[in-house]
Design a protein around this nucleic acid. Structure first.
Length: 610
DNA sequence: GGAATAGGCGCG
DNA sequence: AAAGCGCGCCTATTCC
């Protein structure tokens, strides 16, 4: 297609489309747009994989492997499609992007390209994807079978089908087809209409505050994605060899014990079914579908059977090899040599972030693994942790006097619980007592009962707690933190009655009728903690942008944030992180107690700085 | 032969 | 009557 004026039709209305391929022409349109009164525009982009990365799956989605081909702006009346490749300039758009207000569907994606190529440092950028997620979580109890893609939302709301095929078409061809240009224009136009439909719902469900928090949080999240984190590939390969050796050894042991020639999960289950005596088979834990359960818990119950130890080693090393072995190496970006995880706002219905490609939030805690996450040569890591953030949220939300007093007085709540449960004076509490108490504090936050508690304590804290001890501990916890228990009861009652519950910043979660007790207790706590962290990230990113500290936020893991910086800046970075985390907590709980809330360390690797 | 589901396990 | 947190990724299985 040649540059010029065309027209695209959406819902029976034809909109003028200016396809711009010339730099001076682009500049004159930009000037006109800059002179317009303040309105929210839609800005969208189409990207093309760089030639050397074309063979890589979904390369067009990575700002490091792709570049912007088209930049579309829809004003509500007119579409401008700027062909960046033909125009040959990014910087002529910087001011326009930084000064106007915008909206798009999944704006974090475009933001990565704006940061990388367009020299953008800040932007007022709404997102219909975030809005749709918030509204969906507020109104339907489950994500099952739900698509929040632009196409699905538009066809659902406007009863019109959008062509989906062009999105994955080749945007690198010298001359674009009319189908491609029309698609790019319709994308922007439909997003505009979608935004106008969603805005009143954000207000209706009281989501304005959390929406604005998420809108701001897009910036640090887009930057973390862009920054990525370096993996020490040679060291990680060595670690994989260790895991493989362990896998082989445990497999040999299992072959010897069972006589099977193929060791997989199903063959082991079959072996157990065939060989276990009836009196054991009858008490062996079962899965929901009635099969024999083979998780760690089921197996520790029968620790004296010879198959248990080797199978446990086998499962562990198998997981390490398959989830954290070569797959992690495959995630290394060929252009940067780093891992660029994607963080998704409200990925969890509680309001937590979710993470993928790789999921940095589920890397083994093992120091050997985390030591392979390293800063760029000549740099270092600063790592900060929110101390007991969920317990602090529990205290603030429930206003439990005992909890609040402990935090006011700088008392370690795990030690306090430990002294109550072990009936020892607080100064005599041992490390093991405290570890067990951690299990109680966190388990009880989830509303865990005595029955499931032993399993949880063993699995999460390696603590052995009998069912009698569990029952006594649960009772002690509930008596001691009486205000918190009261809150749990009133919270579940009102949430179940209303059919939804709410986080401190107002994210609403529609509850599943069959599973509402646990989530209604947990969502305000877990969600509140996540909101503190998002607030802190926004503040930290602003500090880094507004001052001359050159530091990169590289990852966040629920209560933890990792920053890469020059050793000379480490002190300033530490200060910035600490103040951001305190203020982040205060953004959510304005009268909150921040004493001892942030633990900050530095080091030469993630494991080292933790 | 691809999509969906269950089970298991990693993390917080 | 008791229980009750949240994710993503891998493997095996089942369904169409």
């Amino acid at each position: 297609m040649k540059s010029g004026k065309y027209s695209s039709t959406f819902l029976g209305t034809a909109y003028p489309v200016y396809y711009v391929t010339d730099k001076s022409e682009a500049i004159s349109y930009i000037q006109r747009l800059l002179a317009q009164p303040d309105e929210v525009y839609v800005v969208d982009t189409e990207t093309e994989a760089l030639p050397q990365y074309k063979h890589i799956y979904q390369a067009a989605l990575s700002p490091h492997l792709a570049v912007t081909r088209l930049l579309q702006i829809f004003t509500g009346r007119t579409v401008f499609v700027f062909d960046i490749k033909m125009i040959g300039s990014f910087e002529i758009f910087t001011e326009l992007l930084e000064t106007k207000r915008y909206c798009n569907h999944n704006s974090i994606f475009d933001l990565g390209f704006f940061y990388k190529y367009f020299g953008v440092t800040h932007m007022d950028f709404g997102c219909t994807y975030i809005a749709a997620r918030l509204i969906s979580h507020a109104t339907v109890p489950s994500d099952a079978g739900l698509s929040l893609s632009l196409g699905s939302l538009v066809s659902g709301l406007f009863k019109t089908e959008m062509t989906k095929t062009m999105g994955v078409s080749d945007w690198s061809v010298p001359e674009l087809t009319w189908e491609q240009l029309d698609y790019s224009a319709i994308d922007a136009i439909s997003t505009y209409h979608l935004a106008n439909r969603l805005a009143p719902k954000i207000l209706r469900y009281g989501l304005a505050r959390v929406y604005n928090l998420y809108k701001d949080a897009q910036h640090p999240l887009a930057k973390m994605h862009l920054n990525g984190i370096k993996l020490n590939v040679p060291k990680h390969k060595e670690l994989i060899e260790v895991w493989r050796a362990e896998l082989a050894a445990s497999r040999r042991d299992l072959v010897k014990i069972t006589g099977l020639d193929e060791i997989t999960h199903p063959t082991i289950v079959k072996y157990l079914e065939d060989t276990l005596p009836p009196h054991i088979l009858s008490i062996w834990p079962r899965t929901e579908t009635g099969k024999l359960q083979t998780d760690t818990h089921a197996f520790t119950e029968f620790a004296d059977l010879p198959i248990v130890q080797p199978f446990s080693r086998f499962s562990k090393s198998k997981t390490l090899c398959s989830s954290f072995g070569d797959t992690l190496l495959k995630s290394v970006n060929p252009a940067t040599g780093r891992l660029h995880s994607q963080f998704r706002l409200a990925g969890a219905r509680t309001g937590r972030l979710s993470c993928s490609g790789p999921n940095i939030q589920q890397q083994p805690r093992d120091k050997a693994v985390r030591d392979n996450y390293i800063p760029e040569a000549g740099h270092m890591f600063v790592c900060a942790d929110y101390s007991q953030i969920e317990l602090r949220c529990a205290a603030e939300v429930s206003r439990d006097e005992v909890m609040l007093k402990a935090y006011r007085d700088g008392v370690d709540l795990h030690r306090l619980t430990a002294s109550l449960i072990s009936k020892k004076r607080i100064e005599n509490v041992t490390k093991e007592d405290r570890q067990r108490a951690k299990a109680f504090n966190f388990g009880l936050l989830f509303g865990l009962g005595a029955k499931k508690f032993s399993h949880y304590a063993k699995k999460s804290y390696g603590a052995t707690v009998s069912s009698e001890e569990a029952a006594a501990g649960v009772a002690t916890f509930r008596e001691t933190y009486y205000g918190y228990r009261e809150w749990q009861l009133s919270q579940t009652e009102s949430a179940v009655k209303a059919g939804f519950c709410t986080t401190p910043c107002g994210k609403r979660r529609c509850l599943d009728y069959d599973n509402s007790y646990g989530p209604s207790m947990n969502t305000p706590i877990q969600g509140g903690a996540a909101e503190c962290m998002l607030s802190a990230l926004v503040r930290l990113n602003n500090l880094f942008t507004d001052t001359n500290i050159t530091a990169k936020i590289v990852l966040t893991c629920h209560d933890e944030v990792l920053v890469e910086c020059l050793p000379a800046d480490a002190h300033k970075v530490k200060e910035a992180v600490e103040i951001s985390m305190e203020l982040g907590f205060l953004d959510v709980f304005p009268d909150g107690i921040v004493r001892g809330i942030c633990e900050c360390k530095s080091g030469k690797s993630w494991g080292d700085a933790k």
